[in-house]
Structures are given as C-alpha cells and as structure tokens.
Design a protein around this nucleic acid. Sequence first.
RNA 1: GUGGGCGUAGCUCAACGGUAGAGCAUCAGUUUGUGGUACUGACGGUUGCGGGUUCGAAUCCCGUCGCUCACCCCA
Length: 423
Amino acid sequence: MNIQTLKGFRDFLPKEARKRQYVINTFKKVFESYGFEPLETPALEYEELLMGKYGEEGDKLMYRFEDNGKRRVALRYDQTVPTARVVAQYQNDLPMPFKRYQIQPVWRAENTQKGRYREFLQCDIDIIGISTPLADAELLTAVASSIKKLGFKKFKILINDRNVFKQLTDRGTVEVKNLPDVIRTVDKIKKIGREGVLNELGNKGYSTEVASYILQSLETQKVTPLIAEIFKYMEDMGVDSTCYEFYPLLARGLDYYTGIIFEVEIEGYTAGSVCGGGRYDNLIGMFAGKKVPATGCAFGFDRIMEAMEEANVFPANLETTKVLVTVFSEELANKSLEIASRLRAQDINTEIYLEPSATMEKQLKYADAKNVPYVVIVGEQEIANNTVILKDMQKREQKQISIEELVQDLLPARQGDSETSSE
RNA sequence: GUGGGCGUAGCUCAACGGUAGAGCAUCAGUUUGUGGUACUGACGGUUGCGGGUUCGAAUCCCGUCGCUCACCCCA
C-alpha cells in the first residue's frame, strides 16, 4: 500500500490549516460586509453540464468518470459554470442582483508545478444580474478591502477595459477570429517583456510594423469613459487612489470577458497576480437561455497564502488552544477537570492533559510543542488555599491566583484575539 | 503533451564500486511539583521497484514507478 497523497493533492496539517482558515474567515467577513452571500455547490456535476464550457484544453484536464449508478459525472472545474447552473435552476428564488461568494475546491488534472496543484481552493465573488458600472466599482472596492484586511500594505489593482482591444479589430489591424490569440500574447508582457511579445507576434505572422503598432496603440491608450466612471465611484467609496490604476496592456487570457478586466499585484511578490476578474455578460445566462450580465473575480488562494507568508502578515497567535490545564495526579485530576469546565463555560479554549500520571515536565513539553500560550497547574498546595498557578509560557512567568482571577485573566484581553473563531 | 533534476531512517541530507552514517524528530533516563537551549541511551533502512554489468552495486547501465521544476496551457 502506498502511504502518500496523490500527485497534486495536499494535506494541510494543523499549523497550515489554521492559517488557511484564518484567510478564509477574513475573506468571508469582508465579503459579507458588502452583502455577498455564501453559495455552495456539489463537487460532482453531470459531465455534459461541464464539458465544452472550458475549451478543448479544459475538457482534457477535467476529472471525469462513471459513478456507481452508471452516470457520466465530472468534478467541478471552476465555480462559475456551476453558478450559472444555479442561476438557471433557481431563477425565481434568487434575488437580483445575486451577490454570492463561493470558497470551495476545484479539480484540474494538470501537470503540477510550483503553485499549481490538481486540487486547489478557489475563492470567488460575483455580482450577477446587473450591468451597472457601480457594480464593477463595488466589486473592485470589495477586492481592495479584502487585500487590505489580510494585512497587505502595498498592492495595486491593474484595471483595463476589454473594449480597448476592440479598436484593433475595428481598424482592421487584427482579424476578429485572431483577437483572442493576440490578447493572449500581449498578456505575457510582464513575463516575457516587450521584445518577447513583439517576437511572438512576429511568429504569428504579424510584420514588425504591425506588431509594434499593436503594442504602441495599447500603450498610449487613454482612460475609457467606462473606467473613468468606475474610478469616480471607487473614489466616492473611499478607496485609496494609490491602490488602483488604468493599465491598458492588461489582457487576461480568457476570451469571455466583455467589459472591465483587472488583476491585483502585491508589491514585493513576483510570482504573479493574486486576484483576477472582470465583467462577463455572456456566460452566466448560457443555461437560463437569456442574457444575464455578471461581474466577478477569483482570488488565487495558494498565491495569497504564499504572499502573506513572504510579507509576514499572519497574526502571531493563531493557535486554537488558549490554555492547558495540567493534571497533578490521579487523585487530584477531578480538580483540574472542574477548572477546565469552568474555563470552557466562559468560551475559553481549554485543553486538559489526558494522562493523569504524566510528569509535569511531559505536560509542559506538550504545551510547548503545541504552542499553547498558558498553562494552569493545580497541586496540593494550591488546592489547600483554593488557588491555582497560571503560567505564561511565552514570558516564562507564573503567578498564584484564585479561580475567579484565572477566568478573568484568560478572557480575551483585546478584540482581535478571537478573530480566528469559526465553526 | 514536451524537456531537465531527484528518489538512502518519520524529516533534512552524507557516503558515489569495498561491512549504510549524521543531525533533527520520537521514546526512556540524568531521583522525588515546572517547558523551549544540556548530557546519556534506545528505536529506526531488502538505499522506490525490477533487471543487467562486476569477485563485490546505494554508487555504473537499462527499464519502470513516484516526486519535483520549467515549457505548452491556464475559464
């Protein structure tokens, strides 16, 4: 038997899982502060529902199989298509605009590489059923709030209008059917540089003159009226103007965007954007049989985690257990259990050492290994005068206090200590 | 799908043709109510798997499986 995880699939041990939970909870809090509501959809969908929605490549990378009832099924490949299904299936039950967030794993059978896995968490917010620029502005504002709330000081949302590419076809510089390909190439500019883009366009049959004309006309593009309107709203919502800018070279690979497109870059984090999205008015309605405008984005959860690690913005204490109550001996265990119960009654996360005969050394080492910030010791002397010893593991200090004082001391001192609580 | 790198103890790695080792981790001690940093000891490997070359293979060769990085692609 192979004791290992599947290629591209990962375990998250408590230390890592706690951080992930913290990020998820932070996202949820911000999203909900803007009125986004949670949506969950099944891991499996009918194969035919997903097939053909992500292009040839997508079909190849989709996990597909036959279930025990001989149904052709496929694992969720993104969260947008299932959402489109939901919008079609519950047309009369969803208030419009439908603002939802969805934080669930998706599966793609790609070849793995750094930062790319076969099972990964997608973290989406979308505003569905309304096409106003205000909706785009609110989405961008919620994105800025999220990044800020996670602790990033310096970041930038690069924003473009997909329509700036339209002029290339309007003027006949690029054929309509070739536009997505050209866009894909331009999108690589940050990675392969200006020269690289020109070369690649050259390889695709564009002359040197045309290729540099394409780049130049994009580089000199002025803010479009749509973007200007969105920027005005963002300003009204108090978004710091240094956090976003018009960037006409931004392309994004997808060809389904119809309006604004954007990406978020964290200063100092070079592995790429941590969030991307835009308006896509023709996608959500595909199952409903009518046009349903939508604007939304996805946070790259793994990159967010990596960027947070590098920027060192995780709170110091994400440990879930606040205090370990040691057990002095078999005879005195009842006292420890009683104290633990009293602490838990006050919502203080309390752990008891589960081997009553263990030495104090062993119990303290356990607390240490688990990074539990406080330890309570209840021995004969303490019981005699109705006190306990509260030991601060970080400061290496301890004091003898009454049980009432113990409860008081361990209650959250400041708000923020309980930030991580969740189900 | 294409190309590079790597598989040795739970983890990180050494040994690179001559009896498989270290650090960390784990467990037990260093006497009787106190941790992260000390000392002692124990546990732990058919060197990914299969074949070949050789007196002798962790080491060289072939195959295979796995991992990893990059390209393609990325809704």
